[in-house]
Design a protein around this nucleic acid. Structure first.
Lengths: 328, 328
DNA sequence: TTGTACGCGTTATCAA
DNA sequence: TTGATAACGCGTACAA
């Protein structure tokens, strides 16, 4: 309602002074500052963000593009981003890509139209056009050959950890439900799985590695195939909790008791893993912290900080619940 | 990069014409239109949303405030909102209130600063200040005595449906895990539960109604109390799936088999209900559609449509899975 | 149908 | 320390 002129008139100062009181209070006398603040209170004045943004060439918006909003793992990342953005005076503009390039591009275009200042990507896809100097940060996913800063865990080490847990329980035939083969995280997790096997003197058997797409249904299908093998595994490492949930269902359908007949470990640490029967042992990614770190990095870049040469790697941890047990 | 002047120069027209080609193509000759569009393509010009917004006094942003981003039921609502907003050329600005009034107020203040044009509320709390004519829509929750348009289901009827399902299975002692007593939805669901009992000639027993707060842990505690009763219920209706998930755990701990010893029905229809053991019978709220309808309503209001006098009530449905069975 | 020119509400520059 | 004023980029009334 009230614009800056009203406030200036009410306080008996120029509009420039009002602006200064709000943006750089230090350069203003306490006396005039108080006068102006009183007028601001009285009128309920709020600077017009559009005008301010136009002048400063900044929107203070950050676009966050997520493949699927309903994915609980991503929800945590988004929560982390929102927390930092809110504290730092930025707004989160949420977009769902649905793995659709046009949608992703459309959200990325918001940078060109000044609708937003920066872009945080939660999926593995990149916009068609990424001009140099685009403020872009990836959360969770990354591309080894692009120079895009990413916040993530060490997926290979985390997968190694999971596999070692199974090996430590005495398992020798350990299956793997992998993510899509063209996904870097999937590859890293397979590498970690393989490394752990090799270190333990266990053979890597391709037949024990089945590909899924990170979703529940694919986990169900993958576990079915593993259990239909002539020599099924006694333990399975899934590259996502979602797939592990599907796998649990498949195990039940095959009459396998978890963990008595079959151990299962997931990946991600989504809340619902705790409510499965049995509760799911898993590798916990600090997803909220990943989001927070991504937001901090983005805001740093927007404030003129430079882009780190190395990814920021956060620690993942093993959460042992009841879906894993000793081999018989 | 390229601003409107560059495009105008490249096309050999005035900046006004460029603007017209983009906003009101009909009033421009096809010849000049083509000329301008070619220049737009060539320069990669995108109108500055800040400048446009300032001039039009619109940001085309809609703030969506949700109590907790990680709640999967809300995620669906947000997805519905995003879908419609995207299609209609609006942006979704996501905020988490964390049931904190200051946070909610802060997001609501974005309307005054023109950061956003409208506000969609997913929780039951209202901003401290809601000036008349504020474009405000509620999704799921509502206040009977305020004149705030809401998109929701008929909670009483839905709760009646759930309770009738249990009655139809022969249950006589039906417990209820309710939501917070100061919440309208909780009250409606209790009313529906009570109506069903009464219609079936069953007594309403206060001892069988235990209050939770919609979250897992409270459902666990509530079910424990119900099962510790001298005469525990043979069936329980939970006012949320989250509480039902906690209740399932409590039932297991009490050595009750579901549904053989105890039937359990939830409310909301979150995805994870299908992965419980046993899969959860529940009342499905069309959460994505609720979000979509809320966005449509909001956009209609922003475009000058008037506020409907009545809430928009969407149909809920019973989804029978395996957590409910015949009374013995 | 097209161009000129003003104003949207700020912030930043420059002078005082 | 404060004030006058230009400029941010666009949309639109008005004139041509």
């Amino acid at each position: 309602m009230a614009d800056i002129r009203t406030v200036a008139a009410a306080a008996g100062v120029s509009i420039a002074t009002v602006s200064r009181v709000l943006k750089t209070p230090d350069v203003v006398t306490k006396a005039t500052r108080d006068k102006v603040m009183a007028a601001v209170e009285a009128t309920g004045y709020r600077p017009n963000a559009l005008a301010s943004g136009l002048r400063r060439a900044k929107s203070d918006n950050i676009v966050v593009v997520v493949p699927f909003i309903q994915n609980p793992f991503f929800s945590g990342v988004i929560q982390g981003i929102e927390g930092v953005a809110f504290a730092e005076g930025y707004q989160v503009l949420l977009g769902e890509s649905q793995n659709d390039q046009a949608r992703l591009d459309s959200y990325a275009a918001m940078l060109r139209s000044k609708t937003a200042d920066g872009l945080i990507l939660l999926g593995a896809a990149l916009p068609s056009q990424v001009p140099d100097k685009t403020p872009l940060v990836m959360a969770c996913e990354y591309f080894p050959d692009h120079r895009i800063p990413a916040i993530r865990i060490d997926n290979e080490a985390a997968a190694k950890l999971a596999t070692e847990h199974l090996i430590g329980l005495g398992h020798k035939r350990i299956g793997k439900i992998a993510g899509p083969h063209d996904n870097q995280l999937s590859q890293d997790r397979i590498a970690g799985y393989r490394a752990a096997l090799t270190a333990a003197g266990l053979a890597y058997d391709e037949k024990l590695v089945v590909e899924g797409d990170f979703d529940v249904e694919s986990g169900h299908a993958a576990m079915s195939r593993l259990l239909d093998l002539p020599e099924p595994p006694t333990a399975v490492f899934s590259a996502s909790d979602e797939m592990a949930i599907g796998a649990l269902k498949a195990a039940r359908e095959h009459g396998k008791r978890v963990p008595d007949d079959l151990s299962l470990i997931g990946f991600d640490g989504i809340r619902y893993g705790d409510f499965c029967d049995p509760p799911l042992t898993t590798v916990v990614q600090p997803n909220v912290e990943i989001g927070a770190a991504a937001a901090r990095l983005m805001i740093g870049i927007l404030k003129g900080g430079d882009i780190p040469a190395e990814d920021i790697v956060l620690p993942a941890s093993l959460l042992v619940r009841q879906s894993t047990g000793p081999a018989k």
